[in-house]
């Protein structure tokens, strides 16, 4: 299927997405995924990652905002679903089905279904075609979902906690498949995950949602090479320029402070120790720490 790329070159654009539930507000989320990139969506449980993904896919109704795939709303262009592969955190096929029968169901559903490619993925993932899904491990089920998602020639892959519950070896295999997928510069991936090491390996961009708000959406390299964790004493913390503090957390003998430019902070606060910040560090400081109001 031929799909027009939006004028901006983004595969997916979310603008001011708002959705309210009792006790939760997904507050004006805006993000876009350029072609040929992997965007990791991180945040604590209940932050709004799945709500964002489900809104994008039309599984829940948004209160306001626009969501476009290749410049078109999904509700107005159902055929775009041919180009979107989705993997949820659990398998959605009944356990008495086999991969072969699953393939038949999907072949009857997608015009772009490629049976040869599906068979290749089953062989590559060592999935027996004629065994019932109920005999599969969690990892095998995930691989089957990924094989199914990739076999209708999607241009965008959306993964909602798809790698959770897998052992590191299996996760590594699957991440390699994702990296292969985006080798073609026309393909992109949006993946929400709790496993920050996965995102550090494959993601180009990291979008961080916290309590329903998008705190940032930055390139992974900017986070890795520019963000830092400053370790300082109470006196140094109080003397800090508050505009340098993104988030902070007091521990027994020191203050941990997240800064957006570690080299600048090193020059400015010579007495402090400044370490590189991992995605986990950033997430923890934002979620468990405090921010200057």
């Amino acid at each position: 299927m031929t799909t027009d790329t939006s004028a901006t070159g983004n595969i997916l654009e979310i603008k001011n997405l708002t959705k309210q539930y009792p006790g939760f507000l997904l507050d004006s989320i805006s993000l876009s995924i350029p072609k040929g990139s992997i965007m990791g969506l991180i945040g604590e449980n209940g932050a709004g990652k799945s709500t964002t993904i489900k809104s994008a896919l039309g599984l829940i109704r948004k209160d306001s905002g626009t969501i476009t795939f290749w410049g078109q709303e999904l509700s107005e262009a159902r055929q775009l679903k041919e180009d979107i592969g989705v993997v949820f955190d659990s398998i959605n096929f009944y356990e008495t089905l086999t991969p072969a029968k699953t393939g038949n169901v999907l072949a009857a559903s997608y015009k772009q279904w490629n049976s040869g490619q599906y068979k290749n993925y089953l062989e590559r993932f060592k999935l027996p075609a004629d065994e019932e899904i109920k005999t599969f491990s969690k990892g095998m089920k995930t691989k089957l979902c990924i094989a199914a998602a990739l076999s209708h020639a999607p241009k965008l892959l959306i993964l909602d906690e798809a790698t959770s519950g897998l052992d590191p070896v299996m996760r590594d295999d699957i991440l390699d498949v994702f990296l292969e997928f985006v080798q073609d510069e026309e393909h992109s991936i949006l993946m929400s995950s709790h496993i920050s090491t996965d995102l550090e390996k494959v993601a180009d961009y990291i979008a961080f949602i916290h309590k329903g708000k998008l705190l940032f959406c930055k390139t992974k390299d900017e986070l890795r090479y520019r963000y830092g964790i400053m370790r300082c004493r109470t006196e140094e913390f109080h003397n800090m320029d508050k505009s340098d503090i993104l988030a902070y957390r007091k521990e027994d003998y020191q203050w941990n402070v997240l800064v957006a430019d570690k080299e600048r902070a090193k020059r400015k606060y010579k007495a402090a120790v400044i370490d590189n910040a991992t995605i986990d560090d950033i997430l923890l400081l934002y979620v468990k720490g405090e921010q200057i109001k």
Binding site: L57, G58, L59, R78, K81, F88, N92, F93, Y94, S109
Partner: peptide, 18 residues
Amino acid sequence: SFDEYSNWAPYALIMPVS
């Protein structure tokens, strides 16, 4: 019952069906 057990509905709706 099978659909509910396997959480089929959201998957069905990401396929090109209304």
